[in-house]
Design a protein around this nucleic acid. Structure first.
Length: 267
DNA sequence: ATCAGCACCTGTTGGC
DNA sequence: TGCCAACAGGTGCTGA
């Protein structure tokens, strides 16, 4: 479920409560949650959390030892701090702290992954520039888009080129920029690329302000839903009138993902 | 290099 | 109520 704004909301909610907690043990209840490339996760015992942040859609838990735990929530992953007590319905991993609390990872579909790495996670994780990075400017965004035949929406979803944008915010940014999801990325004018980058930043920042979008069941680390779903123009609105021009919103499939756009506002 | 298709998983919803 | 298909905020692999 979660894209950049949801992961950012979760990271902000966990940073203070988790700082300085010391790991007592890791309880792995679904083994495949641990990425095969991960350093041995049991090695975290005794380590102390120094901060919680985000890279693309990865939640990053940094430790005093210099290691970092990258958590990818994929479709249904949730993180929450629990007092001692029964496991959640789909609890796959728990990081148990010395004080008895635990960070529980609940994940119905079992797609989520944990990977413990040494050093800078951004370098290890093979993700492109973060969509909200100040280093992403018109020139570098343009270089990514130019000369490619792939539909612009498919490119926006490619985490190795641009990290953090998922299906909701790709659809929303393209609506705000007035660009069809199917347009070949190399066919965009410099002006359209500029508009698109601005739309991306705006929609991601506004979504963070509203603590993310809860279309179905996303909740943050405190169990609270976001409210940005109320501000969506096209995502999930197939057949409903465009909020700008009343034309029915269309749904197509691009790269196996539901894709929503207004056939009148987006050319 | 690209990209469609499928795999990974479970839960929910809507049609018949 | 039951059954079945379609769908879901994501990504990785395979083969054309």
């Amino acid at each position: 479920m979660p894209e950049l704004p949801e992961v950012e909301t979760i990271a902000r909610g966990l940073d203070r409560p988790l700082r300085n907690r010391i790991v007592a043990a890791i309880d792995v209840r679904w083994h495949r949650t641990i990425d095969p490339r991960s350093l041995p996760i049991e090695a975290l015992a005794g380590d102390r959390i120094s901060s919680v942040g985000r890279v693309g859609k990865f939640l990053i838990i940094r430790f005093a030892s210099g290691r970092a735990l990258a958590v990818h929530l994929r479709m249904t992953g949730r993180l929450m701090i629990r007092r001692a007590g029964a496991a959640l319905d789909h609890e796959r991993v728990a990081i148990v702290f010395r004080d008895g609390d635990r960070l529980a990872f609940d994940d119905a579909r079992k797609f989520g992954r944990f990977r413990l790495v040494d050093g800078d996670p951004a370098a290890v994780l093979d993700v492109g520039v973060d969509a909200l990075s100040p280093s992403l400017d018109d020139a570098s965004f343009g270089a990514t888009l130019r000369k490619r035949k792939t539909p612009i929406k498919v490119l926006l979803l490619d985490q190795r080129r641009l990290a953090g944008v998922g299906n909701i915010y790709a659809c929303e940014a393209l609506f705000r920029a007035g660009i069809r999801p199917t347009r070949r990325s190399g066919a965009l004018t410099a002006d359209q690329r500029k508009k698109l980058l601005r739309a991306l930043r705006t929609v991601l920042e506004k979504a963070i302000e509203r603590r993310g979008s809860s279309v179905d069941d996303y909740v943050d680390a405190e169990g609270l839903p976001g409210t940005f779903q109320k501000s969506l123009y096209v995502y999930g609105r197939a057949g409903l009138p465009c909020r700008r021009c009343k034309t029915p919103i269309k749904r197509i499939v691009l790269a196996q993902r539901g894709t929503f756009f207004c056939p009148a506002c987006q050319q």
